[in-house]
């Protein structure tokens, strides 16, 4: 299982028997439908496309309705692909339904979402700049970023700034991956997944879930000791 899609519902807390409170995010994973299987010969790469989220057919487009209908599915809102080897792709079949049950023996997941948009923000909020002093002669520049470097610095050639220089600009509303979140509970009956801690995006936002692809040392150790 390499990818699932779901809806972030909100957060709550869960107590264990020792009284330890765990903050959890509730993610609803409805059934994801396999809508296409890409293969090397035809598409040049192998991958599996899944679709999630009901929508009215009149809000979809005729090509997309036809695409979903090929898999025997109603019109779906979101379509995402995940790459895999052609052998793995062969294990999926068109129209197959993937549910939260496929995460049953997964201890850690990555959750991918679109973070909340904060609009155009200055350097202090966006990059944690310190700003200037409140007094000592600073006038009307208290939240400005300060010097952004001159042409003599190692910041690109010909007097230009290096790309990626931290400045004011759009903050949020970007794709964020939160890695290695603990799976706290799985409710197969209602298709709910509880992961520890926050995930990007607002409530009711679409998030993508995959088994964690890389763990840090302590989590790897924990996983090994559990086995």
């Amino acid at each position: 299982m390499a990818l699932l899609m779901g809806t972030k519902l909100g957060m709550t807390r869960v107590f264990d028997d020792n009284g330890v409170s765990t903050p959890v995010t509730v993610i609803e994973i409805g059934s994801c439908v396999v809508t296409q299987i890409r293969d090397e010969d035809k598409d040049g790469y192998s991958a599996v496309q899944i679709a999630y989220g009901d929508m009215k057919p009149r809000n979809s487009t005729i090509p997309m309705i036809g695409h979903d209908a090929k898999a025997g599915s109603d019109a779906k809102r979101f379509h995402r692909e995940f790459r895999c080897t052609s052998k793995e792709a062969g294990e999926y079949e068109l129209g197959q339904s993937l549910t939260v049950a496929s995460l049953a023996d997964v201890a850690y997941v990555d959750v991918i979402g679109t973070s909340k948009g904060k609009g155009f923000q200055g350097g202090i909020k966006r990059h944690n700049f310190k700003g200037q002093q409140a007094t000592h002669g600073v006038e009307r520049k208290h939240r400005s970023p300060g010097s952004i470097g001159g042409h003599a610095l190692n910041a690109g050639k010909s007097g230009r700034l290096k790309k990626g220089k931290k400045m004011a600009g759009q903050m949020g509303n970007v794709r964020i991956t939160t890695r290695s979140l603990d799976v706290v509970r799985i409710d197969e009956e209602r298709g709910l997944l509880l992961v520890k801690g926050p995930v990007p995006g607002h409530n009711k936002a679409m998030v993508q879930i995959r088994p964690a692809i890389r763990l840090n040392r302590s989590k790897t150790k924990k996983l090994a000791s559990a086995e």
């Binding site: 909100g10 709910l192 009711k204």
Partner: peptide, 10 residues
């Protein structure tokens, strides 16, 4: 509702 669903977990 979503809120009821989250509360029902606990």
């Amino acid at each position: 509702s979503t809120q009821q669903l989250i509360e029902s977990l606990n």
